Amino acid sequence: MIDLTNKKILLVRNDNIGDLICTTPAIEALRKKYPNSQIDIVVNSYNYSAIDHNPFVDKIYCYTKPKHKKSLLDKLKAGWGKLKILLAIRREKYDAVVVFRSDYSKSAELFSNITTATYKVGVKNPKGKDHFNIHIPVDDTKHEVEFCFDCLKEFGVKYHDEKTLFYVPKSLSTKYSQFQGFILFHISSRKVENRYSKEKFKTIIANLQNDTILLSAEPADFAKAQWLSEHTKAVFIKTSSLEDLSGVIKNVALFVTLDGGAMHIAPALGVKTIAISGATNMKKWYPWGYKDLVIQDKSKIADNILPQTITEQIQRASEHIK
């Protein structure tokens, strides 16, 4: 075992918000193993909220990806911000770097390469060389939470029932406290294969005896959610951001969602989650702690799932809800 007691450790997780949420149990376990070590992390502006206020990290390096900016000036500003972070990381003289990415990422490895760390952990570059000296095998039958623990195996870090974490400001949970005990449907998903028709959602809601039902959606699906609110007993809550949505989720008793970042937020808040999945590998990405509540058709197309199948799963999961 490699001992990192009193060492400086840099973690890198610069992809999506759900991915970073899945990393939080490993970060907690790392802190428990090395309470006196310096543990810092690199994230981006898109996933920052998944690590904000996390009690197990010391410093958060947050940068904006230049590709996410439209104007040349904004791209240059983002590039300059990233460069300043790379220089700060170089000066810190880390002893170990762990890149939590289950697919090789050149941009993520850059944060490792800028250091003089003795131990550099990451997955192998399938197209050529990389500079990691501890390679982590990728097993797509394992959950992402488990993969993150594999990344820390050489340092003696083990899983002890750590939960995923997501911070919700008290102001947001209080804002939506009137929805305690409700069922919340989140009807948006980025990929076509993971989407579900409004007509089928209408059938599901009509079949439920529960009258305390909410709807949430991404801006692209606001019209769809509004249509559902006009044709069912469900109430549409138009949230302004993913963080705002988390305030609603924090209060509800059951979260029914299509695949996306919100699917990982709910379990991190201790909310029972039913995932309606399409093309996603749900062995790797199911809502942590709620594997048995995943609904997925063999076709890997969410809209092929019968409304009755989803209705029955909701009824079983919400028996305690009045």
Rank of each mutant, 00 (worst) to 15 (best):
R91H: 13
T116D: 15
F100A: 04
V145S: 01
H131L: 10
V145Q: 04
F111Y: 15
K82L: 14
I136F: 03
S105D: 13
E144H: 04
K127C: 01
L86C: 12
K106R: 14
H131T: 13
V99G: 01
A117S: 15
K120L: 10
W80T: 13
V97H: 05
V145G: 00
V123P: 07
K82A: 11
D140C: 04
A108P: 05
P137T: 00
V97C: 05
S102Q: 13
Y119D: 05
F100D: 02
S107L: 13
G81D: 09
L87G: 01
I89G: 01
E109T: 06
K142A: 00
V138C: 02
K93F: 10
T115G: 07
I85V: 13
D95P: 08
V97T: 14
T141D: 11
R91C: 09
K120C: 09
K127M: 09
V98S: 06
V138Y: 00
H135N: 10
K93W: 02
D130L: 11
K84F: 08
A88K: 15
A117H: 02
T116M: 07
T116E: 14
A117K: 01
R90V: 02
K84R: 15
D95I: 02
E144Y: 05
K129T: 13
V121L: 10
S105F: 10
Y94V: 06
V121R: 05
V121F: 11
K82P: 01
V145E: 01
D95G: 10
T141C: 03
D139L: 02
K106V: 15
T116A: 11
D103K: 14
Y94N: 08
A117D: 04
V145M: 03
G81R: 03
A117P: 02
T115K: 09
V99E: 12
T118N: 13
G128N: 08
V121K: 08
W80L: 15
R101W: 10
G81M: 04
V97R: 05
S112I: 05
D95A: 04
L83K: 12
F132M: 00
K129M: 04
G128W: 11
K124G: 02
K93E: 15
F147C: 06
R90G: 01
K142S: 00
G128E: 09
E146D: 14
V123N: 04
S105M: 09
N125G: 06
K120D: 11
F132V: 00
V121G: 02
I89L: 10
K106Y: 14
D139H: 11
G122N: 11
Y94S: 05
A96S: 14
F147A: 06
H135D: 11
N125D: 12
K129A: 15
Y104M: 08
H135S: 09
D103R: 12
V121P: 07
P137Y: 00
D103T: 15
K142R: 08
S102H: 15
I136N: 00
F100N: 06
F100C: 08
I136W: 00
F147E: 05
F147K: 06
H135P: 05
T116P: 04
K142I: 06
I134Q: 02
L87Y: 15
F100H: 07
A117C: 08
V98W: 06
H143P: 04
T115F: 09
G128R: 06
A117N: 04
S105N: 10
R90D: 02
V98P: 00
K142Y: 03
D139G: 00
K84S: 13
P137H: 03
N133H: 07
P126G: 10
E146R: 01
A88Q: 15
